[in-house]
Computed example of a mutant assay.
Amino acid sequence: MALQSFGRELRLLTPVHFKRVFNQPIRVGTPQLTFLAVANELSHPRLGLAISKKSDKRAVARNRIKRHVRESFRLNQHLLPQVDIVVISKPGVSKLEDAELNRMIEKSWRRLQRRFAG
């Protein structure tokens, strides 16, 4: 069984890590979320979140989005290539129902897999 934790080694922690992803990313997007990814030299993917106040002023709404993205990443990390990923929110993402948000995130993971496989 694959390990399904979300420990410190699976997160982008420093501004240097984020800048590296922002420089030359491969983009996968939906109208409400953008996924930026860059290959890394590690044996696992890493996740960073950029959920801004522009997407929703309420912290509870931003935290809900973060929880969904982190949980989806945790469950799908063994399927993802060795990449550093930053998820950026856009206005309107907080208006999505949980099921629709989860479908959108899952679809973006699959698109990222295809982009890095070929």
Rank of each mutant, 00 (worst) to 15 (best):
M1P: 13
A2D: 11
L3W: 13
L3N: 10
S5R: 15
S5D: 15
F6E: 09
G7I: 00
R8L: 06
R8E: 04
E9N: 12
E9M: 09
E9V: 06
P15R: 14
H17G: 12
F18W: 10
K19Q: 15
R20S: 13
R20Q: 13
F22Q: 09
F22K: 00
I26G: 08
V28F: 01
P31W: 13
P31Y: 09
T34R: 14
F35H: 07
L36H: 01
L36V: 10
A37H: 07
A39W: 08
N40S: 10
N40K: 11
N40H: 05
E41Y: 00
E41F: 10
S43L: 06
H44C: 07
R46V: 15
L49Y: 01
I51T: 03
I51V: 11
S52V: 12
K53S: 08
K53A: 06
D56C: 06
K57M: 00
R58C: 08
R58Y: 07
R58W: 05
A59I: 01
V60R: 01
R62Y: 11
R64V: 15
I65R: 03
I65S: 04
K66C: 04
K66R: 06
V69P: 10
R70C: 07
E71D: 14
F73R: 00
H78W: 10
H78N: 15
L79M: 13
L79T: 13
L79R: 15
L80A: 08
L80F: 11
L80W: 13
Q82C: 08
D84F: 09
I88Y: 11
K90G: 01
K90P: 03
P91F: 11
V93M: 05
S94E: 01
K95N: 06
K95D: 07
L96C: 12
L96W: 06
L96Y: 04
D98C: 02
E100G: 02
E100F: 09
R103S: 09
I105K: 01
I105A: 02
R111H: 13
R111T: 08
L112N: 10
L112P: 05
Q113V: 15
R114K: 13
R115C: 10
R115G: 11
F116V: 10
A117Y: 05
A117T: 14
G118W: 13
